[in-house]
Design a protein around this nucleic acid. Sequence first.
DNA 1: CCTTGACCTGTACCAAGGTACAGGGTTTAT
DNA 2: ATAAACCCTGTACCTTGGTACAGGTCAAGG
Lengths: 135, 135
Amino acid sequence: MEKLTIGQLAKRAKVNLETIRYYERRGLIPEPPRSESGYRMYSRDAVARTEFIKRAQALGFSLREISEIFALRMEPETTCGDMKAKVEAKIEDIEQKIADLEQIREALVAMAEKCRGKGPIGECPILEALYKNNI
Amino acid sequence: MEKLTIGQLAKRAKVNLETIRYYERRGLIPEPPRSESGYRMYSRDAVARTEFIKRAQALGFSLREISEIFALRMEPETTCGDMKAKVEAKIEDIEQKIADLEQIREALVAMAEKCRGKGPIGECPILEALYKNNI
DNA sequence: CCTTGACCTGTACCAAGGTACAGGGTTTAT
DNA sequence: ATAAACCCTGTACCTTGGTACAGGTCAAGG
């Protein structure tokens, strides 16, 4: 089994080397065996695990949540339903964020529409809205 | 003209007292005149300004951007169009965030649908997708 | 008069997710 | 043989938007 140094792992997983050590400190990546001189020696699995973390992050999971997923996976009683529940909770989370942003967008669009875009800033309806209105 | 202490300002603008001092350090609120004993004495305008900051923040503007808006307002050549441009840039920004979240949502929904929600975690299609797929 | 509450400055700390050294040892390539 | 490139630990620093003291002064109520 070929072993990777931390630099090789970082390169393959396309993350910063310091990030690997950071994930180890956070418990996201297990402490690997060391070479005689104390170098971390990773198996191939570490690349997959690091990529897993990056994919989950890209889907909106925090590092804490990713830790929880790994922990879940290690418990023998865990079922697929538990994992599905996590994903469904995250979907709701994302949907809430989208709804919040839609509201913000509506308010911004309404403000922009009130402004002809000409004239001095002293009479800008946008600034007036920010100074006086409830949004 | 009635003057407010920092505590009174914080209460009326519904922010933490430390936040007022923080905004002063960031240059968002001008340094107010002091009483003989060195207390900050604010005019009514400070309440409106603090509320402006909070409203703009709620619309997705960062404190840095809010500073820029205040700076813009002080320059005599600034027109309403400059302000409108800021709002339109923010709308694009928000729309991009919404689009990103929609994509994430789609990916999560697709993953959840692959999972029947039963059986051991070892065969969970969600975990497999995170381990192997490009998303 | 004295206590309590409000204010002052300055600095440290928080979340989250890293990144960047310093100061040392090791491995690899020339 | 020696320089470059890599690794080690430990700690400090970054962003954004605050919050929380510590240690001291001041003001208002009973």
